[in-house]
Design a protein around this nucleic acid. Structure first.
Lengths: 107, 107
DNA sequence: TTTTAATATCGTAATATTGCGATATTAAAA
DNA sequence: TTTTAATATCGCAATATTACGATATTAAAA
């Protein structure tokens, strides 16, 4: 055990859970907030800003990239990350749809 | 390691992450959807419906209860769970606020 | 009272996540 | 070319999560 039984759930349930899971870490929340706060896309001032090791930040960035929430662009020897605004908006709509649908018929 | 460094994040970041984390499991998504689908609050048909062991379902219910998303009421020897609609709406607003705030100033 | 049914809790095994040092890799700068 | 700086990846240790059987607990029913 310790393994989530994804087979017994439908695709939407698994996808929703996956997204929530990725957002379920304070470092990733902080990264998203910091990327957004800079009105230009910034790179790894994140290491300084957040106070986790470079390897750790890189790992978190990868997970955010995997679900498409941010995108990275090479800029010389740096990386410039920014929020993928289309995906961001789509996700927001999707979560609202989950919230709205799920509260229907409720006690 | 393996321990999340909550001290280096602010309260809101930790709280948001905590909520996302709880929602980040397909069983808990399925539980919320099923509870909502029944127009009366239902109890542990969840075990039958979802196909996880009774102990496992009970554990997931506890986590959802901990963040206040559902509430349980004793009904004879059964438990009747339902979505805490106030908390639900509050949460939805909160997440929207996160999404709206975080996309500002973005590239 | 004893039995039964529903639920919660405990203990534990399997697996996943977090975090980091060490080590690639890559591209500009010297 | 060699060096340097920024980032990614690997491998591991520490901890957390998931799942479940076994065992409490609780309240109705017999």
């Amino acid at each position: 055990m310790g393994i989530t039984k994804t087979q017994i759930f439908d695709q939407r349930q698994n996808e929703l859970a996956q997204i929530f899971k990725i957002l379920g870490h304070p470092a990733r929340i902080a990264i998203l907030q910091y990327i957004s706060k800079q009105n230009a896309c910034i790179c790894n001032d994140l290491v300084e800003e957040i106070g986790l090791a470079q390897a750790t930040i890189s790992q978190h960035l990868k997970e955010l990239k995997n679900i498409g929430l941010i995108k990275g662009e090479v800029e010389g020897k740096s990386m410039c990350y920014c929020i993928n605004i289309d995906k961001w908006n789509e996700l927001q709509k999707d979560l609202n749809s989950f919230f709205n649908t799920t509260k229907q018929n409720c006690c």
